[in-house]
Structure formats: structure tokens, C-alpha cells
Nucleic acid binder design. Structure first.
Lengths: 251, 251
DNA sequence: CAGTTCACGATTGTTAACAATTTATGTCAA
DNA sequence: TTGACATAAATTGTTAACAATCGTGAACTG
């Protein structure tokens, strides 16, 4: 009976991307900064908030039903993690990573995730692995139902849970940031629709971990990241929907 | 002729730790949040701001000569990186990591730094390595002059520059946070005065990188981190100077 | 018609006053 | 003296008004 999950949802109304939440019922108690940050994180991960989308304070205030202070604090936190770009006197815009930033994010993941998975395969915890397989089940279900945004989100969240399985809160936080920024990058540099799904690669990785085959798990993950990266065209960044293009329509 | 460097300095006045800046001349322009964050970062790295020290808004306001807004934003940023602990309605306190957090920070460094150094040794950049050797020269100079706080800071900063040498801004930011939190941990769990210096281990690591010996560089760094960690007694956390102990004196 | 200027509206940045909470102080009774 | 309780002070959280800045578009000029 989980139905009224209040999500930050983006829809196109008169040519402008809108951001809403608490549309049906505002029974949720005072969203704190943390809540706002989480919602925007989620929206970015699901690629419903496109890069360069403006997040005006007023809009967010009425969206979350909070004062300006909360919103500004949330925006500051988001900007400190590279999720949004806070331009002085101009407002907050969903980050629009350039080639260099994209490389940095991927390189960071290449540096961190392989040893993480390797270590996970060496000393695996039963319950945490169970969480991972449960998660993959969710991914499969979403894929079967062709729920695009849910697939994208779950696909990224797998890597976060991979970090969480390691039981290190510091690493977990870093991975969450990296994965979210990756979503932005994929949205910007991704070739058409191939951007979404890594198919059963997650399953293979988890199997290797389960088998305790550290070396294989590591290699599979590297291949997986490379696979994601190869789906990008680093030299052809899509025009961010800042200027007329998105409003005038693709004609 | 670098003399009036305005530093955040802590001194004991009538039994209370004070925090001052801009004491001699306030010629520096309006410190932004970034500036305040940097100063506090530095003070923590140099172990002049002890864990659990209260950072009241009023104090920081007059210290930096800014309004409350700036201070609060800075505190929010610091808390989001685990440098301070922001307690609701009670104020901001320099973070006081427990055993679990300490483990997480060290594990994270163990995960990230070895592959970082390994990679650095494989494709080393001349100019960036030059920066590192220059830095080690500074460390030696500080050691020769027995400048304790400077040594501590430079010692940690070496690892940050190690990350910067890799040319990845994401990794650099992560390392800065990890190194700073390590300072807190060493201050809390460090056995007496052994906490400070890793002697010439930095030099050895840099030599291995210079020689392009990735494997050796990696091993040396692991040994270095282990060495730091072995100087800690994880089960005997020093009483944070919250209660009477620090005020009544060690009698 | 192109280009510039100016004024207005909209949005963000800042300040200051107010509200809420915690901490310290002082009083009184057991 | 100790403890509980009430009051006052100090500190943080919040709100609202004000100031500053930017974007837009109309009016004006060449």
C-alpha cells in the first residue's frame, strides 16, 4: 500500500520544466534541509532534473512548503557536492559538468570502486550481500515493467549499496555523490537512449562477490564502468536546455 | 617577509580556549564562507582546535568580522564534511570521532590512497612531482625548526598534494576531508606525542614514485598509513576537553 | 532597422528583529 | 549541603523586511 510516496517530479508545462512535491497530500512533517537535499538528489539520479535547470528559491519554497532559509541551506549543501552550481546573484542551476569534470568523476570511480568490490569479495557479509541481491531483484522488476526512471535510479543506487555493503559510512557518502554526478554526466554525454541500463552486469558482479572471487569481481566492475563510459561521447555534449532549443522544440 | 599571515590561532586565556584572527591588521577583504571554512580546516589540521571545542556563532562573527549568516553557512558546510558536529539548538562543536568513525576514515584512506599513489607512479607528471619534493623540503625545514603545528599541518598536507598531483579535483577534495578528519582522530587517539611525525617516509614514497616503481610506492604508502594507525590506541580515547579535566589542569 | 539607454520587475543577498530553546543563576525547602 | 524548581541570561532558529544585483523590454537615437 505504498502509493502516496511524495516524489519530486518533473513535468513539462508550457515549455518549462516544473518541479513539484507534496502535490496530493502534505501530511509529511516539515522537511528539513536533509529532506530537500535527498529529494533533489533523487530527482537528479532519475534524470528528471536535467542539467542547467534553474532551481529558483521561490519555486523550491512553495514546492517543499518551507521558508527560504531551509531552501538556501539545502542549495548550499548541494553545491558543495557538485550537484548544483550556485552562481552569485543569479541563482542555482543543476550542475552541467564539462568534459574535464566528467573525466574526474569517472576516474574517481575507477580509483575507488575496484578496490572496494575486491575487498567486498574477500570478506563478504551474508546479510549485506542479501541486500544487494534483493536490490537486483528490484532492478529486474523495474526493467520488466519498462519503468525508465526507476531503472535509472536503481541502476545507480546499486553502486551506492555496493559501498554501503562495505559498512563504511565515509565511502558510502562519497559513492552517493559520485553516482549522482554520473547521472548528470550520462544525461549530458550519453548517446541517445543507450544511456540507461547495464543489463545483467550487476548480477555477474554480485555473483563473483558471492563466490569470493575478488579478482573476477574487480575485473567485472572495471569492465562495467568502462562499458558505461564507452556509451558516452565526451566530445559531443548535448546542448543543455538553457537556451531556446528546448523551448522552441526540435524543429 | 611573510610575517602578518593572519591565522586562526588558539590561545588559552583565563581557562578558555580562544579563537582569533585578523588580530594585527584587518586589511583582508570580507571573508566569504569559503575563507571561514578554510581557516577552520587549517586550525583543525594543525590541531589547534581540539575536538569538542565549541564554536559559538557570536565568537566566530567577531573573529572573522562577518555577519551571522556567513558563519552559519560555513558551519553547515563544515558539518556536512564531518569536521564539526552541528547540534540542534545547542551549537557547533569540533567533531569528536568515535572508534567507529575513526575506523571508517582510515579504511577509506586505505582504500583510496594506495591505488592513487600506484597510478601516480605509473604516469607521473614532472611539474607535479616537483611540487611534492618542494613540499617535503618545507616539511624538513619545519622539522629542523621544531615548529610543531607547522609540521603537523604540512605532514597532512603532503597527502592532499599527493592527490592534487593526480590532477583530479574530486579526489583532491575527498583527500582534504579525510586528512583533516585524520588530524582529529590522531589528536583524540594518539599516544602522547608520537602523534606528530612520520619522519622520512614521505621522502621514500616520493622517491618510489619518481623511480616509477608503482608497486613499491604503493607498499610504502600502505606501510606509512599503518604506521600512523599503529601510533593510535583505538580503545583509549582521550577525554575530550569538554568537562573539567582541561580546565582544572592535569594534577 | 540596429544599437543603446533607461527603468522596471524579478530574484538573490543581507541585515536585524523576533521566537524558541537551552543553559546558567538563584532561591527555597528538606 | 543537596536537590528541585523557577527565573533570567545567553544562544540558536526563524521570519520578515530591506538592499543589491541581474534580466528584460520599452523607449529613444542614430
Amino acid at each position: 500500500m505504498i502509493m502516496k510516496r511524495a516524489v519530486l517530479k518533473g513535468s513539462d508545462v508550457n515549455g518549462e520544466t516544473q518541479v513539484k512535491a507534496y502535490s496530493e497530500n502534505e501530511n509529511s512533517a516539515d522537511p528539513t534541509e536533509k529532506t530537500i537535499v535527498d529529494r533533489i538528489y533523487r530527482a537528479v539520479m532519475e534524470q528528471r532534473l536535467a542539467p542547467n535547470t534553474k532551481l529558483s528559491e521561490a519555486r523550491l519554497c512553495e514546492t517543499f512548503g518551507v521558508g527560504r532559509m531551509r531552501v538556501r541551506r539545502a542549495l548550499l549543501l548541494l553545491s558543495s557536492q557538485g550537484i548544483i552550481d550556485l552562481q552569485s546573484n543569479r541563482g542555482a542551476y543543476v550542475a552541467c559538468p564539462d568534459k574535464s569534470e566528467a573525466r574526474d568523476v569517472f576516474d574517481a570511480r575507477m580509483l575507488i570502486e575496484p578496490p572496494l568490490v575486491k575487498q567486498l569479495a574477500q570478506k563478504s557479509d551474508g546479510t549485506s550481500l542479501r541486500i544487494l541481491s534483493d536490490h537486483i531483484a528490484l532492478e529486474d522488476a523495474a526493467r520488466a515493467r519498462h519503468e525508465r526512471t526507476e531503472m535509472i535510479r536503481l541502476s545507480g543506487e546499486f553502486h551506492v549499496k555496493l559501498a554501503q555493503a562495505g559498512g563504511n559510512s565515509v565511502i558510502s557518502r562519497m559513492m552517493r555523490e559520485l553516482v549522482t554526478r554520473t547521472s548528470l554526466i550520462v544525461g549530458l554525454f550519453g548517446s541517445s537512449d543507450t544511456a540507461s541500463c547495464p543489463d545483467d552486469e550487476h548480477t555477474k558482479i554480485l555473483n563473483a562477490i558471492h563466490a569470493g572471487d575478488a579478482r573476477r569481481a574487480e575485473k567485472l566492475l572495471i569492465a562495467h564502468l568502462n562499458h558505461i563510459q564507452s556509451g558516452l561521447d565526451m566530445d559531443a555534449r548535448k546542448q543543455p536546455p538553457d537556451d531556446l532549443a528546448s523551448i522552441l522544440g526540435p524543429d
